[in-house]
Design a binder for these strands. Structure first.
Lengths: 192, 192
DNA sequence: GTCTATACTTTGATAGAC
DNA sequence: GTCTATCAAAGTATAGAC
């Protein structure tokens, strides 16, 4: 199984870059730092990613794929759409605290220029997430599924924010219970 | 009332810097840009703020004061602690969409180093906010006031995040109603 | 004397050449 | 993988206007 060192260079670079970006932020990490971490040459990096912007874009695109994966896993982990929504929140609660939070949101904050590719990717991502959550909510018996989806999105956004700053002991600790209560409320006969 | 031009230089600089920081982010704004915006000299700026870090710190401290002001105004705008909590959410919902969101959170994302003064200020701020909201919630008849405070905090954090990225039409649009439902739920006899 | 304006130094980054 | 061109930004120093 002779692996081709060239073919996985792309992923190896992205792994190292993503790790550094997640830990220190995009601006704080230089291309040289990524090269040092990898022990590769500059030529290789710039052949795989022609510029730092391209690298950042690839990093964010991978983050969106990771999110989609999270969503799929949550869907598999439960049978009812209600429990699937809870699973999404649980997944975020598991990974958010102790980290720097959501890569897409942090990078969004680091690149405020609306025309910057990193900015656009994150905006597109959050529009998609909103639609995904509403779509999931539409499969529940909620009277107002769009509202339920939006409320879960607020919880998730707050969870990333609170969890990354205050850690696991912060306001995010009980987010899953919160989500469960919200779903119960929105699908209760009183509201319907 | 002969005003001393020197004495308000500090505030004028801070005004201009805060505006630029809010719009473009701290990293993206250079000291020269602030000087150009103000039409002042470098000497003056560096006499009032010995370094960019000092300026950023002053900017964040002012943001925390603005938040305290928001909280006080919300307290005055309603009689019951329940409605005061709603007013806090309403205040955030009024200002968050269309802006870049919360200065403290954005700057937190821009300075991931735990020992950076900007990082510490924002962490302290969010710890304080959490306590303030819990304190407010304790004056309601909620069975679990800390939980109510934390849930309101999640909504506010999510509101800043969602509102700044997706705008007023995003998931944040109905945050006030959400907060109201949560407060009603947490103070309802069924939960108590 | 206080502020503006500009020139300079240093640092650290991207990017490319070899 | 080292070396270098280029550029932008933080500070510093200094010269000059009111």
């Amino acid at each position: 199984m002779a692996r081709n060192p060239t073919s996985d260079a792309h992923d190896r670079i992205l792994d190292a870059a993503a790790d550094l970006f997640d830990r220190y932020g995009v601006h704080a990490v230089g291309m040289q730092q990524i090269i040092d971490e990898l022990g590769c040459g500059k030529q290789l990096l710039y052949r795989e990613f022609a510029s730092k912007d391209k690298l950042v874009v690839a990093y964010l695109q991978r983050s969106t794929r990771d999110w989609d994966r999270t969503l799929e896993d949550a869907a598999k982990a439960a049978d009812t759409p209600e429990e699937q929504l809870v699973e999404v929140v649980r997944a975020v609660q598991m990974m958010a605290p102790g980290t720097r939070g959501c890569s897409l949101r942090n990078t969004h904050a680091e690149f405020p220029q609306p025309d910057h590719p990193a900015h656009r990717i994150s905006v597109d991502h959050f529009r998609t997430v909103r639609e995904q959550l509403r779509e999931l909510a539409r499969r529940t018996p909620a009277a107002n599924p769009d509202r339920l989806g939006d409320r879960i999105m607020l919880i998730i956004d707050g969870l990333y924010a609170s969890g990354s700053i205050l850690g696991a002991a912060g306001a995010a600790a009980e987010a899953v219970d919160f989500a469960r209560d919200v779903i119960r409320f929105e699908t209760s006969p009183a509201v319907r």
